[in-house]
């Protein structure tokens, strides 16, 4: 019991939790390698790999040249032939350079070859705005990859989940894309010790409520929870669902909540149009849960522009707590 109590108490940052997961994986499976730009002695652009190179050497914690396309392709080839690479993009934005290998190769090889191979590849994407890094270092492109059959796309929102989902991804025979919001890296939270997995494709109900459902992803989960705390005393009882995986999406958890509350807000940082919220909304509209909707669905997503540099503009173009409060009040009080 004491040991367990200590485990319960232990807190790590989100970045530390990722590092711990990779440490466990490297220690337990020789086939696991880390690849990425400046992940060795530099420790990664966000210090996620940290000192792992000292422990496992440059053969297993490999600095790649600044060659996103080639590097991603090498990871695909290695995954096809017996290794389990964890490939880090320095910023998720740079994945645009590697789309060919992610979308045309990693995602499709298994299918194109009639199921005779699999690609046990993990890719990590530091994502999102809020760091003043402007348009080419702040995007949320998870929906791009969420559109590709053959990939699994996750957005863990807590230190506990990111460790568990990374370890689950390593056990998964198919390519798993992990989007890590950069603002979350320093967030601390309870993280169990040792090896455990958090299921891919399963959402988490972070707060139960009866009046309206907020389905949020990544950093937005925390904003939704903050909004829910404000709304509670106002008599608006919000259920907050952390979607966690955008492909495959957890239909049942979302639909069950909407059946209960009849009202739905989707909150996500990616550009609103044709994004994760569109998929959640359509999923509800196409299901029997449609009959339980008692108001229009509301989407809060990123503005229709690149992420701007000016800090006030940067805040304004992605959903913030007051935006969620407004939407929830309007919805609960029958104004929309």
């Amino acid at each position: 019991m004491n040991a367990q109590t200590r485990t319960e108490m232990r807190e790590l940052s989100y970045a530390e939790a990722i590092r711990e997961a990779m440490d466990i994986a490297l220690a337990s499976d020789d086939r696991v390698i880390l690849m990425g730009e400046d992940i060795g002695v530099y420790g990664g652009a966000f210090q996620v790999t940290g000192d792992l190179v000292e422990k496992y050497g440059t053969d297993r914690v490999m600095d790649t040249p600044i060659s996103e396309l080639g590097g991603a392709g090498v990871a695909v080839g290695a995954a096809l032939t017996g290794l389990k690479p964890i490939f880090e993009f320095q910023f998720s934005d740079f994945a645009a350079l590697a789309m060919e290998q992610i979308v045309n190769q990693a995602a499709k090889v298994r299918y194109m070859l009639g199921g005779s191979v699999s690609v046990p590849l993990v890719m990590r994407f530091p994502a999102g705005s809020g760091t003043g890094a402007a348009a080419q270092h702040s995007q949320s492109i998870e929906a791009w990859l969420g559109h590709v059959p053959g990939l699994k796309v996750v957005q863990p929102s807590t230190p506990e989940d990111v460790k568990g989902m990374l370890l689950a991804a390593l056990e998964d025979p198919d390519p798993v894309m992990i989007f890590e919001h950069k603002i979350l890296y320093k967030m601390k939270g309870h993280v169990p010790e040792g090896h455990y997995t958090t299921p891919i494709g399963k959402a988490a109900i972070r707060r139960a409520g009866k009046d309206l459902t907020i389905v949020a992803t990544s950093l937005m989960v925390h904003k939704a929870l903050a909004a829910a705390e404000t709304l509670g005393p106002e008599g608006i009882d919000v259920e907050v669902i952390d979607l966690r995986t955008i492909r495959p999406m957890d239909r049942e958890t979302v639909l069950a909540s909407v059946r209960k509350t009849g009202r739905l807000i989707c909150v996500y940082e990616g550009v609103k149009t044709l994004g994760v919220g569109a998929e959640i909304s359509a999923m509800v509209a196409e299901s029997d849960a449609f009959d339980f909707l008692d108001a229009p669905i509301v989407r809060l997503g990123g503005a229709e522009c690149p992420i701007p540099y000016n800090p006030e503009l940067e805040k304004a173009v992605v959903p913030q707590v007051p935006d969620i409060l407004d939407a929830a009040r309007n919805l609960a009080e029958g104004r929309i």
Binding site: G262, D291, F292, L293, D294, G334, R335
Partner: peptide
């Protein structure tokens, strides 16, 4: 009418067109 209202009306045997709505 909202989908939920329609479903309730359907189940309750009520003509939705004959109901005064209080929503927007």
């Amino acid at each position: 009418a909202t989908p939920r209202a329609r479903a309730l009306a359907r189940d309750g045997g009520v003509d939705i067109d004959a109901i005064a709505g209080t929503g927007p």
